[in-house]
């Protein structure tokens, strides 16, 4: 039996005029761990409304995890920001597509592309 499936979040703030938070999530985003992501969003609220979620080390996302993200989008978009994804694994991406989240959110191959999206080059 595996040990508890945890979530670790590391952050980088980048950008000159427009601050962008790049959050690298590592582990499992589910009903037990999604409050950690919500806390991180709230703690960065005064700094930025632009978030790149690097999902390359995310093994699993439940509805509670997707829900925390969807619950923040309107607020950020109303303030000129957004939440975008980078590098989901095949399984997580399959759920992202089945839920049709790809119709309302963006998923980039590289962090650089995601940062360019916020800096206006692809917007």
């Amino acid at each position: 039996m595996k040990e508890a499936e945890e979530l670790k979040i590391t952050q980088t703030i980048t950008g000159d005029k427009q601050k962008i938070a790049i959050l690298n999530l590592h582990g499992y985003l589910d009903s037990n761990t999604s409050p950690l992501l919500k806390e991180r969003f709230l703690s960065l609220d005064s700094q930025t409304h632009c978030f790149v979620l690097d999902f390359s080390d995310v093994e699993y996302v439940s509805s509670a995890g997707w829900g925390v993200i969807l619950g923040r989008i309107k607020d950020y978009r109303d303030k000129g920001g957004d939440i975008v994804f980078v590098r989901m694994n095949r399984e997580v991406a399959s759920v992202y597509e089945l839920l049709e989240l790809n119709k309302v959110m963006k998923h980039f191959i590289t962090i650089q592309e995601a940062v360019h999206y916020f800096s206006g080059e692809h917007k």
Binding site: G67, L70, G71, R72, K74, L98, L99, V104
Partner: peptide, 22 residues
């Protein structure tokens, strides 16, 4: 619907949708 969840800033409501889609 996804747009309801986003516009109403709900964090819940995806569970049954996920089960049905998966």
């Amino acid at each position: 619907s996804l747009s309801d969840i986003i516009n109403e800033q709900k964090e819940h409501g995806l569970g049954l949708l996920m089960i049905e889609r998966l």
